[in-house]
Nucleic acid binder design. Structure first.
Lengths: 180, 180
DNA sequence: TCATTCCTAGACTGGTCGGTCTGTAAACCT
DNA sequence: AGGTTTACAGACCGACCAGTCTAGGAATGA
């Protein structure tokens, strides 16, 4: 039989990335991932040890992919905190958008502690990015304000499906840097 | 045998309210609810028809309980949008706080459509409350801005556990009503 | 050519899931 | 007292879960 083009491990990760994001980690069975990846069960356990291991790998991959894309869009975005809205916008336009995988993992409840920690790390890294776009001598709380707005935008977009959320976020972020 | 003090249906709803909120609906098995309620399985199916029926009843109960409490705190809160932070604060202090049950239900993934609709209705009702605290001739987008801040606050509080989130929210909401 | 490595196919285990069924005991209402 | 309602306990069902095991096929490299 001809070998599939990509490595079995890669195919597993790609299938897990899609299914875990679309349906949640707990709600997705291993057999479904295996079927979509076209991979034998033993191969999964050889590479990742357990479903939890696969989930950890998924969150790591998702963190890197999301951050890379976010940084790429940030480079062409408006300067300052408003640029965050510009970088969020293409993500919000994704056809398969279902919010933030890390928020979803925490909201799922009963997620393994190692997954919750990965989610927290992701949000800390995001905080660093936001911090980096604050004016040099801005109050330390400025980044926290922007983060609240970003998380709120994600949730609103996910729950209402309203594409106009991004315009509201741009307004909010644009007003942050010029306080009274 | 002496009848338990409360009705079986009430005990079921109380147990479901605690467990579904603390662990998520999908992650909570029926047997666990039955054990905590001290109720036979057939009684659950007699009153609610299915786990989904119990979940719907839970979300309805939660909506009413949350709204009642929120309105009660709003009456003693500062006027205007800042008051929303005052009303959020006691909720954020709850020892068993695990975010918004409706957000969590949507984030869970694979939730029954009827549950997602209940979540959307809850957020629409919340929007009405926020709208009611906006200045009479405020732009229609003002409520959307406040909602983004509220949802973001809930998520930040849930994910970081930081109790200081409420102070940032109060700052953000306080600045909303006096735009440039 | 032969051994090693990676992978596949699929049966299998023990446990949990939502949901059904039987049978019985207690309380309530005439 | 007798019938009805309500809830009890617990066995049971098929489906699905994560994870294990066996056996063998296909490519690689000495």
């Amino acid at each position: 039989m001809a070998r599939p083009p990509t490595d079995a491990r890669d195919r597993l990760l790609v299938a897990a990335a899609r299914l875990f994001y679309a349906q949640g980690i707990a709600a997705t069975g291993i057999d479904e991932v295996l079927r979509e990846a076209g991979v034998a069960k033993m191969t999964l356990y050889h590479h990742f040890g357990s479903k939890e291991g696969l989930a950890v790998a998924f969150l790591e991959w998702r963190h890197n992919a999301w951050m890379t894309r976010f940084h790429a869009h940030l480079e062409q975005a408006a300067p300052g905190l408003v640029g965050l809205a510009d970088a969020l916008e293409p993500w919000f336009r994704d056809g398969d958008f279902r919010g933030c995988a890390f928020i979803n993992t925490v909201c799922e409840g009963r997620s393994a502690p190692v997954l919750v920690e990965a989610a927290r790390r992701h949000k800390e890294d995001l905080r660093m990015v936001v911090q980096g776009r604050c004016p040099p001598r801005a109050a330390s709380g400025l980044a926290d304000e922007a983060l609240i707005i970003i998380e709120g935008a994600i949730i609103r977009r996910q729950m209402t499906g309203d594409p106009e959320v991004i315009a509201v976020v741009r307004r909010l972020l644009g007003r942050l840097v010029v306080p009274s």
